[in-house]
């Protein structure tokens, strides 16, 4: 596990850019726009989490997993909202960043009360893509699992 201690923080401008990137990315998945969401990852991106032994490698598999998650929520009649915050952004190289963030998911059933569904910490490697960024690696730790 990388320590939070050593750090090369980025400029306020890049920090803001990355925050906007995540807001958009979270909104895309919560809206079920899987095709647009997956484009925020590089072609051969890897997503892993502590709850699943097998990481998802490449957009094709990532898309399949995302569809499954989106469909599951639909079938259960619930909406998910990803809230991402407490973001730190460190420079890895001229075109790559290491980020860490907290994210919780609020789940609301039709006519129901919102509830915390999950609390997580995420670690990403972002790489430059045009004037923006894409995720190359993501590791998510689900609290409590």
């Amino acid at each position: 596990m990388t320590s939070t201690t050593t750090s090369t923080p980025v400029s306020a401008e890049v920090y803001e850019q990355v925050r906007c990137f995540y807001s958009r990315q979270m909104q895309l998945i919560d809206s079920g726009r899987v095709r647009d969401w997956v484009e925020t990852f590089v072609e051969d991106a890897v997503i892993a989490n502590n709850a699943n032994p097998e990481p998802a490698r490449g957009r094709e598999i990532i898309t399949r997993v995302a569809h499954r998650i989106v469909n599951e929520a639909r079938e259960n009649g619930v909406l998910h909202r990803h809230w991402l915050g407490m973001l730190t952004v460190d420079r890895l190289g001229p075109d790559s960043l290491a980020t860490r963030f907290y994210a919780f998911v609020v789940e609301t059933a039709k006519g129901g009360q919102p509830e915390f569904y999950r609390s997580t910490i995420g670690r990403d490697v972002l790489v430059r893509h045009g004037s923006g960024w894409q995720v190359r690696e993501r590791y998510v730790t689900h609290d409590g699992s």
Binding site: T4, S7, P9, Y15, G85, M86, L87, T88, V89, R100, F101, Y102, I121
Partner: peptide, 8 residues
């Protein structure tokens, strides 16, 4: 940014 790192 300072607080995010500190809370982590």
């Amino acid at each position: 940014h300072f607080y995010a790192r500190q809370m982590q």
